Simulated assay, not measured.
Amino acid sequence: MIKATEVLQWRRSGRCSTGTCVEVARVGDRLLVRDSKDLDIAPLRFTEEQWESFLTGVKAGTFSS
């Protein structure tokens, strides 16, 4: 759970050139993912294992069209 006083350190990809990108923050053992152009939508939450699996898929081209 995120504490009201907790300041999240959101990170963007270095390839983000428009400023409207996906951002990631760590909270304990969870990773939060949000769309920087619509901050009113709650971020998605992932475990470390889920996030690592996603990154492996991205690097392998699993999500390329």
Rank of each mutant, 00 (worst) to 15 (best):
M1P: 03
M1A: 13
I2L: 14
I2N: 00
A4R: 15
A4E: 12
T5L: 10
T5F: 15
T5W: 05
E6R: 05
V7E: 15
V7Y: 15
V7C: 07
Q9R: 14
Q9T: 13
R11T: 07
R12G: 09
R12H: 12
R12E: 13
S13C: 03
S13N: 05
S13L: 02
G14W: 00
G14A: 14
R15N: 05
R15W: 14
S17F: 14
G19L: 07
G19H: 08
G19I: 09
T20A: 10
V22L: 07
V22Y: 01
E23T: 07
E23V: 08
E23M: 13
V24E: 04
V24D: 00
V24C: 00
A25Y: 03
D29P: 01
R30F: 09
R30V: 08
L31P: 05
L31R: 02
R34C: 08
D35K: 12
D35M: 06
D35I: 11
S36N: 10
K37F: 02
D38E: 06
L39Q: 13
L39H: 02
D40W: 12
D40K: 08
I41S: 10
I41F: 03
A42G: 02
A42R: 15
P43W: 14
P43I: 04
P43C: 07
R45V: 15
F46Q: 04
T47D: 01
T47I: 07
E48M: 05
E48V: 15
E49M: 06
Q50I: 03
Q50C: 03
W51C: 00
W51A: 15
E52P: 02
S53D: 15
S53V: 02
F54K: 00
L55G: 09
L55Y: 01
T56M: 02
T56Y: 11
T56D: 05
G57N: 08
G57E: 03
G57H: 08
K59C: 04
K59T: 10
K59P: 01
A60D: 03
G61F: 09
G61R: 06
G61W: 00
G61C: 05
T62S: 09
T62C: 09
T62L: 09
S64N: 14
S64H: 13
S64M: 09
